[in-house]
Design a protein around this nucleic acid. Structure first.
Lengths: 188, 188
DNA sequence: ACAGAAGATGAACTAACGCTCATCTTCATC
DNA sequence: GATGAAGATGAGCGTTAGTTCATCTTCTGT
């Protein structure tokens, strides 16, 4: 073992920084200052930069956590549908959960934006794979329009309105999902 | 006449500033610096501030121009439909024009955002009136879902994807409009 | 308990931005 | 032309936000 073990206070500080960054970005968006995050973590700015060379790295780490949450949710949904759960209801479920969580969560919003961007990391590929499986399951069940694609749902995630009142958000989802089901064969 | 006539160079500079601001904001978004706009106008920053007390005033002036264009387009569309033009095709037309113009035009994007905000100026009221007329005409013609509202179209303008490739934008509009026509009675 | 490396600190640096104002220039008037 | 007010100029102010680094502290291995 060439390297000495990492110090316990360093581990603790990194955890505090991630927690504070998550909280601050969730609350105030990715534009919060590094000083604010450092203060919330009970740590000096320099410690932030020891763990994350630039602000983009820190924000990216937080965003990645949320992307992972979203991916896990979609994968769980796929599993339920494969187990016999009604596809359309499950799709309404995930999309609603997503839109609601991104409503007053600026970190999730940023995460969605990143999914729209085309820098394909391994996590993004997992996301696309899961969404793809969900779409083809639902399409085969006849509850989506025949030409429905996973890109359609990526679009949904990217363009979902986040700064609108709850009633508007719900209406938006209704319209979009009705568009996704227009011309569907209908379930057996 | 109490006031002396405005100087010709002052008039010329104001026009140059508006043109430069329009161009720069269209190109780089509302976050361009005042120095950049001044340079593009061939004028010093001080001259910008003589014509527009704050940056918000300048950006607001540019955005207002675009809002007005959009309003005129909708009003013309209403007139055509009232004259017997097919309602659904006309609606597809305006919305397509809007999405396309906001695609690589950051000023129009900002204009749409402002329409979504709730500070009702006289221009905004004209916009809502025109959209309202268009929706009720189309609904009465049976080409929109019975519960279609003008808020639905405001939402469309606000959430339209602007940073996506043309094919994605077109697909988005298709889905949204199919959602708007789902459950429609159908034209006579 | 000690040495030394890993880590933490926060004042200060840099860059960008909106905005001001003392000074100079240019046009309208007579 | 001459005059003076309207207008133009641009260096610089105040602020904010990301980043650095010389210095001090704390933990780990022996």
């Amino acid at each position: 073992m060439p390297h000495r073990q990492q110090r316990v206070d360093a581990v603790r500080n990194r955890a505090r920084i991630m927690a504070a960054a998550r909280g601050q970005i969730t609350l105030h968006g990715p534009d919060v200052g590094m000083n604010a995050i450092a203060a919330a973590a009970g740590v000096a700015v320099g410690t932030l930069y020891r763990n994350f060379p630039t602000k983009a790295d820190l924000v990216g780490a937080v965003v990645n956590e949320h992307v992972e949450e979203m991916v896990l949710d979609v994968e769980a949904t796929v599993a339920r549908v494969e187990g016999g759960a009604p596809a359309l209801a499950e799709i309404q479920g995930v999309t609603t959960r997503f839109v609601e969580s991104s409503a007053d969560n600026h970190a999730v919003k940023a995460a969605a934006q990143q999914l729209g961007a085309a820098d394909y990391g391994p996590l993004e590929q997992r996301a696309f794979a899961a969404v793809g499986r969900l779409v083809s399951l639902a399409r085969d069940a006849g509850v989506l329009r025949p030409d429905a694609s996973s890109e359609d749902f990526t679009m949904l995630l990217t363009t979902a309105p986040t700064d609108q009142p709850p009633a508007t958000r719900a209406r938006w989802l209704t319209l979009f999902l009705d568009g996704m089901t227009a011309g569907a064969r209908g379930p057996a």
